[in-house]
Amino acid sequence: MNFLTVASLKEQAGEQALVAFIDCELQSRSQRQTKAGKPYLVLTFADATGSFNLNAWSDAPLFEAATLMKDGTVLRMDAQWTQNQYGVNAASIAWEVLTGEDLESFFAGDAATAEKQRRDWETICAFCSGVRDPRLHALADRFIADLGAKFRRAAAARKNHHARRGGLVEHVAQMMRTADLICSAYPELNRDLLITGVLFHDCGKLWENQYPERGFGQGYTLHGEMLGHIPLGIELVNKLWREVTDSPVSKDWLPLEPASETVRLHLLHLVASHHGEYAFGSPTLPRTPEAIALHYVDNLDAKLEMMKGAYAQANELADGIYEKVFPLPANLVAPLPAFDPPPPPLIAEKNEEAKGELF
């Protein structure tokens, strides 16, 4: 049996039919109409690695079956899978509802993804433990202790990049690695502030892009819809700041410079400005070196993740040219491979001599 994850299905499926099994959770369904007025369903399926939409036409058995299914039903689907610019398609599809050990194994998640996210979580904790400013250190500790489990379930986005359970952990860990290197190149940057800003920049997504304790369907909340992750992040930072400054240890912070209120304001500015433009939802523009750095580190990781997914999914228009995938701005061109220098002639000659001696 050829079993695929959602991510591997989207990487491998193309114009030629790919016969494979896939286990996935029905996240949602939406009824639409064709131009001829016939109803059809847009079904959203997900697993630990990502999600995809599948159309169920009114004359197909899946249409009636899916109408009766509850959201959260986990299916094992066997089909001939193809993919084009409009998404994933399935022909000759058969399915069964997962139960028992198969269901528990599905909810355990893809082993490779789980291992990567475990390592990324360790990276985040290690960077936070290295923050020297005691106020920012205490704030990060409180966040991880109180909301670590919720953090580890959240996605970095609903689509486009890191749009999977645990995707926020992957995004933040990579941003921290990049921010650390940038601080080495620009030592005038406040490393403690930038690392803490990376930790909290998307913390509102714990409500905007959250997953249940069991399952891979990204839900919706009133807080996420009515406020969005930037206002939620500002509110959370302020709440946690009040809690840590009310603790007994905070009396030792009174003589520290810069003053605690200034530190809080700079951190809030990073959360508020990280989208970089009013048009993209930031209530203010980046006004400090750390805010500029955070904005570009965030944008860089998001864009490179989008490109990685686009190369895997986009149709090849010509040799090395791939069709545009939203929200990237243009068709993609295959990246230039890294230069691999040939061995020095002397080493190559010795290798040939050694081969000759064997014979």
Rank of each mutant, 00 (worst) to 15 (best):
N55W: 00
A13P: 12
G233R: 05
N351H: 07
D78N: 13
I292C: 12
L358F: 12
D78T: 09
E188V: 05
Y311A: 00
G197N: 04
L222D: 14
H274E: 03
V97M: 12
A90K: 06
D301H: 03
P343S: 10
V297C: 13
G100W: 08
S51K: 10
E352F: 05
V244M: 05
V19I: 09
S8N: 15
F3I: 11
A149L: 11
L270G: 06
I292G: 04
P286W: 03
E261N: 10
Y40F: 15
A354L: 15
H229F: 13
W81C: 10
F216L: 06
A156N: 02
L98V: 04
L147I: 03
Q27A: 15
P283R: 08
F52I: 05
Q16T: 14
A111V: 12
G37H: 13
D59S: 13
R165T: 10
C128K: 06
P258S: 02
E235K: 10
E235F: 04
G87S: 13
L232E: 09
M226Q: 12
L336N: 09
A291L: 08
D192E: 02
R214S: 03
R118K: 14
R132C: 08
D319R: 01
L103W: 06
P327E: 07
C125T: 15
P341W: 11
L98K: 03
V6A: 12
L346K: 12
D102M: 04
Y211H: 13
E170T: 05
A66R: 03
L328D: 05
P286M: 06
T221M: 07
A318H: 04
G204D: 02
T113H: 02
G228W: 07
C128M: 15
P329H: 09
L168M: 13
D133E: 13
L41T: 11
A126H: 15
V297H: 05
L43T: 05
T67K: 15
L75K: 04
H269V: 02
E323G: 00
N53K: 11
W81S: 07
L168I: 01
F143A: 07
P344L: 11
P248N: 08
C203K: 06
K308R: 15
P248Y: 09
K35M: 04
P283W: 08
P341C: 10
H295W: 07
K116V: 10
L236I: 11
M69T: 02
L256N: 06
E170Q: 08
F143N: 06
N209W: 13
N351P: 00
K303A: 05
S260I: 01
P187W: 07
C125I: 09
T49W: 08
A145Y: 04
T178V: 14
F216E: 07
H274L: 01
A108Y: 08
E208F: 02
T73Y: 13
L222G: 05
I144C: 09
L254Q: 14
D23A: 15
L268T: 07
L103C: 03
I93E: 10
Y211A: 02
L346N: 11
Y278R: 13
P187R: 03
G100C: 06
Q218M: 15
T5F: 06
D298S: 08
Q80D: 15
A318W: 01
T123G: 03
S8Y: 11
K70V: 01
E277P: 00
V97Q: 14
